[in-house]
Simulated assay, not measured.
Amino acid sequence: MRTGKGVEWAMHTLLNLAWSGGGEPVATAQLAAGHDLSVSYLNKLLQQLVKAGLLESVPGARGGFRLARPLVAVSVLDVVLAIEGDAPLFRCTEIRQCGTIGERCPDSSFSEPCAVKIAMGRAEAAWRQALAEQSLADVQAAADAHAPTVAAQVRQTLGRD
């Protein structure tokens, strides 16, 4: 299963907003500068997170983005769906019915769903379940345990200390 860089950017941004503390909005430019990210691309991702209900957009000179709900209420799957969408990862095109092999097989060979499609569907369901079972609070706790100073560094970088 592969996700684009947008999922990584979105997850780090959500974590950075949590670490920034206080619930005050943070400007896109500040969020992008913290990791040398493209402001315009990050802004597109932030808008997707707003649309998904994961962030709030605050207009004005002191505006920006802030978490719409606590990280414990946001699953990794929520972020993936917000950025990547809900389309299935595998699309069966029924190649089993194509070409010489397909022509030589009796019609009864295709009365059951494609075994490849079923196997890939099971794998995707397990992947989605694993993502759904992890909250961003779980990810934050793991990051805090691995790098205990990260929250302070984020606050300092975002001018929150």
Rank of each mutant, 00 (worst) to 15 (best):
1 M>W: 01
2 R>S: 02
11 M>L: 12
12 H>L: 10
14 L>Y: 02
16 N>T: 01
18 A>H: 13
20 S>D: 01
21 G>H: 03
23 G>L: 00
25 P>D: 01
28 T>N: 08
28 T>E: 03
29 A>R: 15
30 Q>K: 14
31 L>H: 09
32 A>K: 07
33 A>R: 15
33 A>P: 00
34 G>L: 09
38 S>I: 05
38 S>N: 15
40 S>M: 08
41 Y>R: 11
42 L>G: 11
44 K>E: 14
46 L>E: 06
53 G>N: 10
61 A>K: 14
66 R>A: 04
67 L>V: 06
72 V>Q: 13
72 V>P: 00
80 V>A: 06
81 L>M: 06
83 I>L: 06
85 G>F: 07
87 A>T: 10
88 P>V: 10
88 P>D: 09
88 P>K: 11
94 E>M: 07
98 C>W: 11
99 G>F: 07
99 G>Q: 10
100 T>P: 01
101 I>Y: 09
104 R>T: 09
104 R>C: 09
109 S>M: 06
112 E>H: 12
113 P>T: 11
115 A>P: 12
119 A>S: 13
120 M>G: 01
121 G>F: 09
123 A>V: 12
124 E>A: 11
128 R>T: 05
131 L>P: 02
132 A>Y: 07
133 E>D: 14
135 S>E: 11
135 S>Y: 12
136 L>I: 11
137 A>T: 05
139 V>W: 09
140 Q>L: 14
144 D>C: 12
146 H>F: 10
148 P>C: 11
152 A>M: 13
155 R>K: 15
160 R>Q: 13
